[in-house]
Amino acid sequence: MSHPGELLSAFLDGELSPAEHRKVMRHLAACEACTTELADLQRARAAVRSLIVLEPPPGLVPAPERPPIRRRVPVWVAAAAAAVLALFIGVSAIAGPRTALEVRLDEISTQYGARTSLDPNVTPGQVIPAIPSIGGAE
């Protein structure tokens, strides 16, 4: 390969195709002049990248949004949730032990339901082919 010339900057920026990248690599291994040029280009690039990020004058642009503040759950809400959970566990125990398959189906149903509710393109009841297989049932 002849000297890569302006491909060197693109090489530095990861903007070459894999084949071009390999060619330049092979050339660099054998060409001291191009290796020196690459180092010079890298220094020039590093110099520009070292420029500090400036803050715009106040009022010019709106400040970036702050992440939402996570509210602590009030104690009475947590207590109520615990009571409902305890009741549910009690009812489940009365209904008898569930098989591993039933538990797995519940897990999938939870996942599936969550996905459909987040994806506006999926209508309720629509069959989604990507449902994971149920362990050993196929």
Binding site: V53, L54, E55, P56, L60, V61, A63, P64, E65
Partner: peptide, 10 residues
């Protein structure tokens, strides 16, 4: 403005 303002200024 919030997302790109600083980049545009720089």
């Amino acid at each position: 403005a919030r997302t790109y303002g600083r980049k545009i200024y720089n």
